[in-house]
Write a protein that binds this DNA or RNA. Sequence first.
DNA 1: ATGAGCGTTGCACATCACGCAACGCCCACG
DNA 2: CGTGGGCGTTGCGTGATGTGCAACGCTCAT
Lengths: 253, 253
Amino acid sequence: MSQTVDRALSILPLLARGPADLGQVADELGVHKSTALRLLRTLHEHGLVHRQQDQRYRLGARLFALAQEAVENLDVREIAHPYLAALNERIGHTVHLAVYEEGEVVYIDKVESRYPVRMYSRIGKPVAITVAAVAKLLLADLPEPERRAVAAKLDYPPYTPRSTPNAAAFLKELATVREQGWATDLGGHEESINCVGAPIRGADGRVVAAMSVSAPNVVVTAEELLTLLPQVRRTAEAISREYSGTAPTKDNG
Amino acid sequence: MSQTVDRALSILPLLARGPADLGQVADELGVHKSTALRLLRTLHEHGLVHRQQDQRYRLGARLFALAQEAVENLDVREIAHPYLAALNERIGHTVHLAVYEEGEVVYIDKVESRYPVRMYSRIGKPVAITVAAVAKLLLADLPEPERRAVAAKLDYPPYTPRSTPNAAAFLKELATVREQGWATDLGGHEESINCVGAPIRGADGRVVAAMSVSAPNVVVTAEELLTLLPQVRRTAEAISREYSGTAPTKDNG
DNA sequence: ATGAGCGTTGCACATCACGCAACGCCCACG
DNA sequence: CGTGGGCGTTGCGTGATGTGCAACGCTCAT
């Protein structure tokens, strides 16, 4: 809507592909060098863009700071974390929390066996949206038209023989997930990794986040992992209750 | 330099503090609601801002994607990683890689004992710049005036009794680090954690990154950790050689 | 029913971002 | 050592574009 801002923001994904000099930026934007310079300067002042010694521009550190703060302020995450940690304490495996946002599924928390480490390692990276248990849970709850639209637009990479092959299979899987209220990923992303997940719902019943437990084949078989499902679902429900305000937390009005 | 872009970008840190509605954004920017709306819309189209059900705005997922891609494209990181992994293989402890950028020090890679996990957990967060070994190494190499300026502007939080207390002590420590070519953090951030680090230099001798090895007291004493220093320095030097093009890597002109 | 508070829209004005052209600088080449 | 091309940079006049205003519609609480 705003031409200037639009152009400026278009520079970011451009630089995400790698450093570029003024001329390249101007060319790719289709504007005069002086215009590109002014935009880059503004981005630079805000720390979103950094200029290296060879004068080329690349994305700046402030970007990390923003991403960091953004994820810290997600209230689902804040509420869910102690539950995830407790579950992890009991069963030992890796626990994930993820949200859906405009076509993307991102992990917003992770608890590893030893101590809490947030899984920023995956944040922003295209999560295996066609196979991950959390992705299925989040997409299964979308309104029908959006669900179909998203499913149609996706790629279906054959990570393993058990990966979701196409949109039809995916939509069918989503229907199942929607019905049963939980999801799995049995070797669909990495041959030897299985996951079981459950949805976290807001007060209106809509799925606001999803959690999952992952473990490699060598530690527990898929069957054994499935025996943990009740615990996972109970945890997800407990989080849902607190998130929607029905739980006995602190005071409430 | 560009008013419109400047205003738009000012929204980001504002939203990083938490979700806000249109009125709040307009107020804090000091512009009319309609102006704020247009800016937010543009940010939204680029995925940097997300609108939640209650109509309030918060930072969007694309931000993570950008931060992710940005860190993946840092060439120091790419070159250093195999060396860090190899060192970690030998000594078992956590290995970090960090860079300095306009007043901030950020971790750009991390190798844990079991398998490589990048430490985005810290990326962008204010690293304990006054005590971390990597921070000392990076700041020690700054030109005198900038070093003094940065040191003067910093806060010196007393994480532990051994934390750097003030600018004078910090500058003195930096002088030592600069002279000896390596740095430590002995319980300056967390009482029980020690680190030793060494600088990675470019072709011109300037420090472009810093690496460190960290281990808790309970595993190895500070003295034992220091015996690893030669290995750390050798690794850093090897990375420096390859980075600056003096190493026998692939072909070279 | 009523009004307050919010986001949204269309519009007229002038601000502000635009492209141009000229400059200075650093290298690479003759 | 001179010369030219390529790069980032600057100042400026023009008009496209971002701006604030006022009016509208909506939801929610009273």
